[in-house]
């Protein structure tokens, strides 16, 4: 009878999961698509680069401060005469590895804490949210610096130190999504028709809570990369690997003579994180229900 009621078979295409619609929305976002392509290239370079360009980033291969393009070194050499391009390629591995694993860790902790707090509420929520608040108060970078300095600067410890201080935002978002969705009538109906708590948490609520979590996870990868760059800039890094922040940190005394040794790795970080945030924005627009529904 009403307008909606008449909108039946013809003008609707069946069988489209909301996530498929989101992907179609995402594809129309040019900036995000370009960023996705650039990110794939960076990832590809990090994995296969060392095979194609087999110069050891630690080896002193030429005179120091040879500018980019001169003497056959595409990006020049640093203060010890080491090849900068090789440092960038090897640094990408470290940055992306730490970025992904620290983000994974914080999303894992954050979603677990947030989901349990939001679903069960009561004293469980109270305790978990106090703990979250506690981690929110810690001065993140200082705390990570102390962990790395005290317990060793392996990649594992660096990842841990980043993950342990950055999960609170994910926990807050997850909790508020669970609080909202658990009151919705389809969750109530599912519970009334015999679903167990585990089913409600993982199969009913989680898929519907995912959009903002996915967006936050994408942003987490970017901020973990920045975080690692900050630590290694200060020299708190695994001495056995090259990382972008560490190249900047070790060359910063020479910025007057060789600005490029600082500018180039900075650009590498900047472009990587920029692309990640563009993809995050694209995901946000694509997954935001307010833009799509009704």
């Amino acid at each position: 009878m009403s307008d909606m009621e008449q909108r039946t078979t013809q003008d609707i295409i069946a069988e489209r999961h909301p996530f498929i619609e989101a992907w179609q929305m995402f594809r129309r976002n040019h900036a995000a698509m370009v960023a996705l392509v650039v990110l794939s290239l960076i990832g590809f370079g990090a994995i296969f680069g060392p095979l194609v360009y087999p110069i050891d980033p630690f080896e002193m291969v030429w005179t120091p401060f040879s500018p980019p393009g001169v003497d056959g070194f595409i990006l020049g050499t640093d203060y010890l005469g080491r090849d900068l391009l090789s440092a960038i390629i090897h640094g990408a591995r470290v940055s992306i590895l730490i970025g992904l694993s620290a983000a994974f860790m914080s999303v894992f902790i954050g979603v677990s804490v947030g989901a349990i707090a939001g679903f069960y509420r009561g004293w469980v929520e109270e305790v978990l949210m106090r703990i979250t608040e506690f981690f929110q108060v810690l001065p993140t970078l200082l705390f990570s610096m102390v962990i790395v300095a005290l317990f060793g600067s392996s990649l594992m410890m660096i990842t841990f130190s980043i993950g342990i201080v950055s999960w609170t935002a994910v926990a807050r978002i997850t909790r508020s999504e669970y609080l909202r969705i658990r009151e919705l009538e389809y969750v109530m109906a599912s519970r009334a028709s015999g679903s167990t708590d585990a089913k409600l948490i993982f199969k009913v609520i989680l898929p519907n809570a995912l959009p903002p979590i996915i967006v936050q996870a994408a942003l987490m990868v970017g901020s973990a990369i920045l975080f690692e760059a900050g630590l290694s800039f200060l020299g708190l890094t695994d001495p056995n690997v090259v990382s972008w922040g560490q190249v900047i940190g070790s060359n910063r005394q020479y910025i007057l003579d060789a600005g490029y040794t600082v500018t180039i790795p900075g650009i590498a970080i900047f472009i990587t994180v920029l692309c990640i945030s563009l993809v995050g924005d694209g995901l946000n627009d694509a997954l935001n229900p307010r833009l799509r529904q009704r």
Binding site: A229, G230, F233, I248, I269, F270, L274
Partner: peptide, 11 residues
């Protein structure tokens, strides 16, 4: 959001 703060400072 994307630029490392120490890099911005050096620039």
């Amino acid at each position: 959001y994307s630029a490392p703060v120490f890099w911005t400072g050096i620039l």
